[in-house]
Simulated assay, not measured.
Amino acid sequence: MSEEEAAAFCMLSPDQILNAIEAQGYPCDGHLLALNSYENRVYQVGIEDGETLIAKFYRPERWSDKAILEEHGFSDELDRQEIPVVSPLRDHSGCSLFYQGPFRFALYPRRGGRAPDLEDPEQLEQLGRLVARIHNVGASQAFLSRPRLTIESFGIKSYQYLLEAGHIPPELQTPYRTLAESLLEQIQISFDRAGDVTRLRLHGDLHPGNLLWNDTGPHIVDLDDARMGPAIQDLWMFLSGDRLYASARLADLLEGYTQFRDFNPRELHLIEPLRTLRMMHYAAWIARRWKDPAFPRAFPHFGSANFWGEHILTLREQAAALDEPTLVWD
């Protein structure tokens, strides 16, 4: 990202946002609310005599236009199969990615809802059915312009970047390096145990915050991290707690999932490795975005000995979890 693009994105103003949306034929009523998003800039926008819209302004150079359009196309495929997903709006010529000066953006209808109740077996079973239907569509073809979830992209490149970027205090760099390299060895062993599992198009970041529940049931939002990967990636974020608790939640999810799609139990070897890779990738994500003023404001302790001491402790706990027997699905 050039310095000019970075500055323009970080200083995106209300007037620029409203002008961009009005240029697409939506007269704004002046109501503008910034939503909780750091990677992109996302706003709730009031429309005169119309339904409120969600506007997503894409971070420059994160995704190519082709990758964004692949995400939009995947969303449309899901929508055609009557899978409840919030798809981008299209103009009269069928375009879903819009341009205004240096900015690229998409518009979405606003859909409300609450987080799923992960204590409710019926909701978990319904969630499992929904994910299986997404995966049936995802398995029909591959992404061509979006990445794969790999040990290298989420783990190796993340820890290497963190050591090079200088955010880790000097006295913690060696402990972090040693631990990260050991974790990556454990993760590789777990991937080897899982074997050659199928990679398919995924939501990629399916946590409770990206699943909204209302009176009609669940619907999916924010496919921005869609990529190729194993099916368990869209399931493990709903599993937490001790082994007994997580096993019960897993059974509920897969009870629903297997009503629509077979599940390969070897993928259970990937739950803790994927959780660990996400932690490593998350820390590197903050570091990579540090020049964006929103990130120092949101993560003021990043770079402190306290932050990195806690991060290393969490990763050590993950090292222990990686040595535990994998969850069993009966």
Rank of each mutant, 00 (worst) to 15 (best):
R199V: 04
Q188N: 10
V197G: 05
G241V: 11
R243P: 02
W290D: 02
G256T: 15
D292R: 04
Q100T: 13
H301Y: 05
F307S: 03
H311N: 06
G112C: 05
T314K: 01
E82C: 09
L268M: 10
F98K: 09
S190C: 13
E125S: 13
T258C: 15
H269C: 15
L274Y: 06
A6Y: 00
L144P: 06
A246L: 04
A180N: 04
I21L: 13
A7M: 14
P273D: 08
L163F: 03
E164Q: 10
Q126P: 03
D234Q: 04
Y161P: 02
V45S: 13
V42F: 09
A67Y: 08
E48G: 03
A319F: 02
L250T: 09
R243G: 02
R249H: 13
D225C: 05
G303M: 01
Y257N: 09
Q160W: 01
G155W: 01
S247D: 14
S304M: 12
R288Q: 07
A6T: 14
A320C: 01
D262G: 15
D79C: 04
D222E: 02
P265H: 12
Q173A: 09
A305D: 14
G138M: 05
W285P: 00
T216R: 12
D196G: 11
F263S: 15
D15S: 15
A23S: 14
T52H: 12
E61G: 12
M1K: 02
A23D: 14
H311Q: 07
K157A: 06
R90W: 03
D29N: 15
L144C: 15
H269L: 15
A8N: 13
L322V: 11
L253A: 09
D292N: 12
W213S: 11
R266H: 09
H31L: 11
A283L: 02
W63D: 07
A321K: 03
E255C: 13
Q160S: 14
N36R: 11
R266Q: 10
A248P: 07
G112E: 05
I47N: 06
L69V: 14
Q123G: 12
D117R: 12
D49M: 06
Y108I: 02
L277T: 00
P273C: 09
E3S: 15
S182K: 12
L118I: 14
L162T: 02
R289Q: 05
E164G: 04
A165Q: 04
